[in-house]
């Protein structure tokens, strides 16, 4: 991390310091100049135009801004951009490879797990991190992994089904509808 020394004064007092940070975002090396207070979510959305990362509450309650920081799901609204200096970041735009949907993305579409789609990026990234660590989770493990991702449309039923389908496991949720 390099600091840009800018000693120019403005009428509002000294200008806040600027810092140069290096991020690897979806495999792309990115260098960004930020202020100390820059949040990762805003750098991704506003500087890098990766608007798949959503803002829903900005307080770490909804998970819409979930990204993988060195493989670990975090709320990008609660991470200073400077804290991510030197890190590897995966956003939803980096999940599909060469235009091919990731297996999770495909099961989300197949299982009707997407309604308004606003929680979907964060939901898929939480699920992706889970399956990387635990390829055959139980249904309670799936639910626990996405409990920090609020969805207002689906009741999570089909989301759990989609993650289970990607992990090729049977769940109680997959039985819903069979009573028909």
């Amino acid at each position: 991390m390099e600091t840009i020394d800018d000693t120019r004064k403005t009428t509002a007092g000294p200008k806040p310091k600027r810092y140069v940070i290096d991020l690897t975002v979806n495999g792309d090396p990115r260098t960004v100049v930020v202020k100390g207070n820059a949040l990762l979510v805003n750098v991704l959305r506003d500087e890098l135009d990766l608007t798949g990362t959503k803002k829903g509450c900005e307080l770490g309650d909804c998970g819409s801004c979930t990204v993988l920081l060195d493989g670990i799901p975090v709320d990008a609204c609660l991470v200073l951009a400077l804290e991510a200096d030197g890190c590897d970041i995966v956003t939803i735009e980096g999940v599909a490879a060469h235009g091919e949907l990731d297996r999770l993305q495909a099961t989300f579409v197949d299982k009707a797990a997407v309604q308004c789609g606003y929680c979907t990026p964060g939901m898929i990234l939480s699920a992706k991190a889970l399956l990387t660590k635990n390829p055959h989770p139980t249904e309670p493990e799936i639910r626990a992994a996405i409990a920090g991702n609020l969805c207002r449309c689906t009741g999570y039923v089909n989301i759990v089904k989609a993650i289970a389908a990607a992990a090729e496991i049977e769940t109680a949720a997959t039985e819903s509808g069979e009573a028909r």
Binding site: G60, I72, P73, V74, V79, S126, A144, A147, G148
Partner: peptide
């Protein structure tokens, strides 16, 4: 405590 993302940070 909290949720998975918060527990990760």
């Amino acid at each position: 405590l909290a949720n998975n993302q918060v527990r990760n940070r």
